[in-house]
């Protein structure tokens, strides 16, 4: 396949005795949107949490197998052999519920990754990052006069876009979105979906969704997971019109899930 940015090798992840992800081999294509879909509890969230080493924070979590990040410079990083903090700065994450930092202003939220990590930015650099990133998530025009206010007055959709901005500000290679619109109304959902389309030129996007429609609308590639296993993976056009597995067929037509 073409330019790969993230690759897993026999990735298996478990909580205590329960194996959530079984032996997954998956290659994520650079600057494309890959959707990971499947019924609830199929391990799709666990899978992406292995990509940025968030999974191991859960109690009694275990990960086997390998995950490689291939940077633009073609440098290959085995993410389980380096500092997890470094991995998480290169692979950003956006969560189900919008979670801007309540004690920080909108401005500070965007550069929260720098503030919290103690990375000093020049005022002009910080201004530039904030403006550029907020423009990327089409939030700039809505909040440019209220940058110093706390984000609590923003709508759910705006908060989620702020969270995407916060992840983007670290200039990651990949951002992982864990059902980013499940707490949002249809209009806000559509805005986020349109946003992803614009963002894929700058960053690779992996989105977890249990919503078949969303996977169909936004993604270039789609992976279908069932009971912890990767059943099928390929271009969305192909998977959605002529899947090769019975299970994928059933999931797409709403018989399971």
């Amino acid at each position: 396949m073409s330019d790969i940015v993230l690759r897993t090798e026999n990735l298996t992840a478990s909580y205590d005795e329960h194996i959530a992800v079984k032996n997954v081999n998956l290659s994520i294509v650079r600057n494309k949107i890959t959707a990971i879909m499947g019924p609830s509890g199929c391990g799709k969230t666990t899978l992406i949490r292995c990509f940025n080493r968030m999974h191991e924070l859960s109690p009694k979590a275990r990960v086997e197998g390998k995950v490689f990040l291939i940077e633009n410079s073609n440098e290959v990083i085995d993410i389980y052999s380096v500092d997890p903090m470094l991995v998480r700065r290169k692979i950003g994450m956006v969560f189900q519920k919008p979670n801007p930092f309540p004690t920080m202003s909108i401005y500070e939220n965007v550069i929260a990754g720098y503030i919290l990590n103690g990375i000093r930015l020049k005022k002009s650099d910080a201004d530039e990052i904030v403006e550029e990133t907020l423009k990327k998530v089409s939030l700039w025009d809505e909040v440019k006069d209220q940058l110093r206010k706390k984000g609590a007055f923003l709508s759910g959709g705006q908060q989620q876009r702020l969270c995407i901005a916060r992840a983007l500000a670290m200039k990651p290679d990949v951002i992982l979105l864990d059902e980013p619109t499940s707490a949002l109304d249809p209009v806000a959902t559509m805005k986020i979906e349109e946003l992803l389309e614009q963002l894929k030129n700058t960053v690779t996007i992996v989105i977890v969704t249990h919503n078949v429609g969303q996977a169909g609308r936004v993604s270039d590639y789609v992976a279908f997971m069932y009971l912890g296993e990767l059943v099928e993976y390929g271009p969305t056009d192909v998977i959605f019109t002529r899947p090769s597995h019975e299970k994928t067929e059933e999931f797409l037509s709403g018989k399971i899930g």
Partner: peptide
């Protein structure tokens, strides 16, 4: 304090102790 807040900080590559000091404590101040 919502668990998501801690995860948000950790996912930005912020070490655990800084997450507690700079995110959790201020949020619960």
């Amino acid at each position: 304090i919502p668990h998501e807040l801690k995860e948000a900080s950790l996912a930005l590559g912020v070490p655990y102790y800084k997450t507690i000091l700079k995110v959790m404590i201020p949020a619960g101040l």
